[in-house]
Computed example of a mutant assay.
Amino acid sequence: MALVCMGLCLSALTVAILGVFVRHQHTPIVKANNWALSYILFISLTFCFLCSLLFNGCPNTATYTLQPIAFGLVFTVTVSSVLAKTLTVILVFKVTAPGRRMRRLLVSGAPNFIIPSCSLIQLALCGVWLGTSPPFVDSDTHSEHGHIIITCNKGSVTAFYCGLGYLGSLALGTFTVAFLSRNLPDTFNEAKFLTFSMLVFCSVWLTFLPVHHSTKGRVMVAVEVFSILASSTGLHLCPQVLCYSHKAW
């Protein structure tokens, strides 16, 4: 119940911040923050918090089928949105002459194609997983003596780690790009804040893997939900706290 309440509160907070952006969408600071990518990021973060609800409650085949699609696709959209925002910042600061190729990339909106491209790859991986060996309801009679625990069998373990590995590679690539662009001028430069948020995101999931393998039953589900909420919170709140502290300083 604590994890459910936390997920609902964080999703409501994200919707509230999105409402502030929509209300002030014509102001210079929202326009400079690339409002379209910001909207996509906030909406996908809202679904990140809400997808944790699929891991709670009574186990059934419907929720187990939706888990890989919701988790993989929503987090891919979120991370690729951060990557698109980072590349936009780099292109803005690299454009110095009207005829340069980077200017054409920026004007044509090339960074915006990153989100559908990355999402289609993750969607294809999820389709292969569900088409070959989808998750199903299973029973665990060995974790706790005298108890039968209803669990989610991942089906194809290879497909599970392929989807998770693709998301991890995308996150590491986004962190690398943001880290390399951290020394750009500070004015309207989000790269430093995005670097820290991606550092938190990668740290949570690197910690998740060994903990996930060492737990079973209900504790494993709690670890999964906590990892989803912690990584989403890192992407959502860390850049804002740093940004407000930086402006105040």
Rank of each mutant, 00 (worst) to 15 (best):
152 C>F: 01
182 R>P: 00
148 I>P: 00
168 G>S: 13
117 S>H: 01
115 I>K: 02
171 A>C: 05
133 S>Y: 10
172 L>I: 15
171 A>H: 05
148 I>E: 07
156 S>Q: 04
181 S>F: 08
162 C>E: 08
138 D>I: 01
165 G>L: 14
179 F>T: 14
126 C>Q: 03
152 C>T: 04
184 L>W: 10
140 D>F: 02
175 F>P: 00
131 G>W: 10
137 V>W: 05
120 L>T: 11
144 E>S: 04
165 G>Y: 08
125 L>Y: 02
159 A>P: 00
172 L>A: 15
129 W>I: 00
180 L>R: 12
180 L>P: 02
166 Y>H: 09
160 F>C: 12
136 F>K: 05
179 F>A: 15
127 G>K: 06
179 F>E: 09
124 A>C: 02
128 V>R: 01
126 C>A: 14
123 L>G: 11
127 G>T: 08
179 F>Q: 11
176 T>Q: 08
151 T>W: 03
129 W>Q: 03
132 T>P: 00
160 F>N: 09
116 P>A: 10
169 S>G: 13
157 V>Y: 13
134 P>E: 11
142 H>E: 05
127 G>N: 04
149 I>Y: 03
158 T>E: 14
146 G>F: 09
137 V>N: 05
174 T>D: 08
158 T>V: 15
136 F>D: 01
152 C>W: 01
153 N>A: 12
159 A>T: 02
143 S>F: 06
175 F>I: 01
157 V>P: 01
117 S>K: 01
141 T>R: 07
139 S>G: 00
181 S>M: 07
170 L>R: 04
146 G>Y: 09
135 P>T: 11
138 D>H: 12
126 C>V: 14
143 S>T: 07
124 A>R: 00
126 C>S: 08
170 L>G: 02
140 D>K: 08
126 C>W: 04
174 T>V: 10
175 F>R: 07
148 I>D: 09
175 F>H: 08
114 I>W: 03
128 V>D: 03
184 L>K: 05
171 A>R: 06
128 V>Y: 06
136 F>G: 00
166 Y>I: 00
154 K>Q: 11
113 F>Q: 09
156 S>N: 09
153 N>I: 02
126 C>R: 04
177 V>E: 07
146 G>T: 08
170 L>V: 00
181 S>H: 06
159 A>Q: 09
133 S>N: 10
153 N>G: 05
145 H>Q: 10
183 N>R: 13
165 G>I: 12
155 G>R: 02
158 T>H: 12
141 T>F: 11
128 V>E: 08
170 L>A: 09
145 H>M: 12
117 S>L: 15
164 L>R: 06
153 N>E: 01
136 F>Y: 10
141 T>V: 03
168 G>E: 01
130 L>H: 02
140 D>W: 03
134 P>A: 12
120 L>W: 11
170 L>N: 04
129 W>H: 08
170 L>S: 05
115 I>Y: 04
157 V>K: 15
159 A>W: 11
158 T>L: 15
172 L>G: 10
169 S>Q: 05
146 G>S: 13
145 H>R: 12
157 V>A: 13
118 C>T: 05
118 C>R: 04
159 A>L: 14
131 G>L: 13
122 Q>V: 10
128 V>Q: 07
137 V>H: 06
127 G>E: 05
131 G>M: 08
156 S>R: 06
138 D>V: 01
116 P>Y: 14
178 A>I: 04
116 P>H: 14
184 L>P: 00
147 H>G: 00
137 V>L: 11
140 D>V: 05
